[in-house]
């Protein structure tokens, strides 16, 4: 493991984690959306670092290309010129947030340190797309079909819920 690989990891990790702080404290919700974009890109980079090429590009296409567009669209529709103060991150919620975050982080770090993971010697990284395709059509056929039904239900349900008001009016 060379020095530059370590440096690359820390750069990617910072890209994935630090935007979370910016989302937490940014006053403009649109800025928060673009920070989320940076965080998702950092996670995509970490996937590539782990040798998951298919997942890295899936992350870019689905999250950055799809879900982020949805979120920004939702922001634009619900954005009001005069943002009421109650919609910003509230100072009174900082203490509960820090307590929740502290408990979760302490528990997670305790478990990570306490457990003796058994990492085995790493193999060569290979392209994963073909094997993922074989797995989706063999071992994971049922979850694959269920996932397509989930997406169909999500699509129909989303259209129905978003249009319901108009129909009743």
């Amino acid at each position: 493991m060379s020095f530059y690989e370590g440096l690359l990891f820390y750069l990617l990790a910072a890209t994935a984690v630090l935007p979370g702080v910016m989302i937490l404290f940014s006053r403009d919700i649109v800025h928060a959306a673009f920070w989320l974009l940076a965080s998702l890109a950092g996670v995509a980079g970490l996937y590539l670092y782990l040798g998951a090429d298919f997942l890295g590009f899936t992350q870019v296409m689905i999250y950055i290309g799809g879900i982020m567009i949805l979120i920004i669209f939702g922001l634009m529709v619900t954005h009001k010129q005069k943002i009421s103060l109650s919609q910003l991150a509230q100072k009174r919620l900082l203490v509960p947030a820090v307590i929740t975050g502290g408990i979760i982080l302490t528990a997670l770090l305790y478990v990570i340190n306490k457990t003796t993971w058994k990492p085995t010697a790493s193999e060569e990284m290979e392209p994963t797309s073909a094997d993922i395709g074989y797995l989706l059509m063999s071992d994971y056929l049922l979850p694959f079909e269920i996932a397509s039904i989930v997406l169909l239900v999500g699509l129909v349900g989303g259209v129905y819920i978003a249009r319901r008001k108009e129909r009743e009016a």
């Binding site: 979370g20 959306a33 910003l88 919620l93 990570i112």
Partner: peptide, 18 residues
């Protein structure tokens, strides 16, 4: 773990549904 903690804090602290 850091990302999970930050996400949880965002859910607790932000009041905008998006």
């Amino acid at each position: 773990a850091l990302m999970f903690t930050l996400g949880m804090m965002i859910v607790v602290m932000r009041r905008n549904a998006v």
